[in-house]
Amino acid sequence: MDIDALLITHCAPTLARLKIGSLLCFHNLEEAEDFQDTIEKYNRKYNSKGLYFRILFACPKRTLLYVYRPGSVRAYMMQRSVLCFLKQYGYTADMSLDDMLTLLEKRFDEACCFPHEAGLFLGYPVEDVYGFIHHKGSHAKLCGEWKVYGNPQKAARLFNTFTRCRKYYSNRYSVGIKLEELIIA
């Protein structure tokens, strides 16, 4: 499995500091222990560039890997509207980011599905996360990186930026530029 290529394909906006976090889903990992070792290696190698890796959920069918920028995630979580929304799920302002991620892991385990607040850890606007819950995933103004219930024009511009970033990163990677050279510190 070429994890570098998957990161380029699915996480380029996070690698480029355009997005606070990305989530990768790996199906049926047979060597879960080896994968954990790989994640630890990536953390040792890339934490100095501000990029972190954490398994949020694992079961025999899938493993969810969170690729994120801790400083950016923490700053977003501390915004008043985001924190107010998160309080209903047990998050508090005095929690460290690690504590928040531990709670998110528990929510993945308890829910046996995708907990809605996970979108906030990916940088989705709080009005879009709320709208998704309120409308049960229907009646979005725009569908792209996520379902948009707030400002579709702003989201469309952002989706376009993410698409261009992925294309640029994929092109650079395809001509031999290494992952570590593409990660913006």
Rank of each mutant, 00 (worst) to 15 (best):
C59H: 11
H135W: 06
K61S: 11
R69V: 02
R157P: 00
H116M: 08
G150T: 06
Q88S: 11
P152N: 02
A93P: 04
L56T: 07
Q153I: 12
E31D: 12
K19P: 07
R166A: 07
Y124D: 06
P13L: 00
Y52G: 00
I20A: 05
S138C: 07
A185T: 12
L97E: 07
L97N: 10
D128A: 05
R164N: 11
Q79W: 00
E31M: 06
Y89H: 06
F108E: 03
S22C: 12
K87D: 04
A93L: 04
E30N: 04
F108C: 01
T161E: 10
L51W: 04
M100C: 14
L101M: 15
I177K: 09
S96R: 07
L122K: 09
P152L: 10
L86Q: 01
N47I: 08
L179V: 05
A12Y: 03
G150M: 13
H134A: 11
S96M: 07
S22T: 12
N43V: 06
A75D: 06
L122R: 06
P115L: 06
H135M: 09
T92E: 08
K106P: 00
G137N: 01
V129P: 10
K49G: 04
F26L: 11
S170C: 14
A75V: 01
K45N: 13
Y169R: 05
L7R: 07
M77G: 01
Y91G: 01
R17K: 14
Y173C: 01
G176C: 07
D128H: 05
G21S: 10
K19G: 06
G144I: 09
T92Q: 12
R157L: 01
P125H: 14
P13W: 01
Y52E: 12
L7G: 02
R157T: 02
Y66N: 11
N171K: 12
R164C: 09
V129H: 04
K106H: 14
P70S: 10
Y91R: 01
C165K: 02
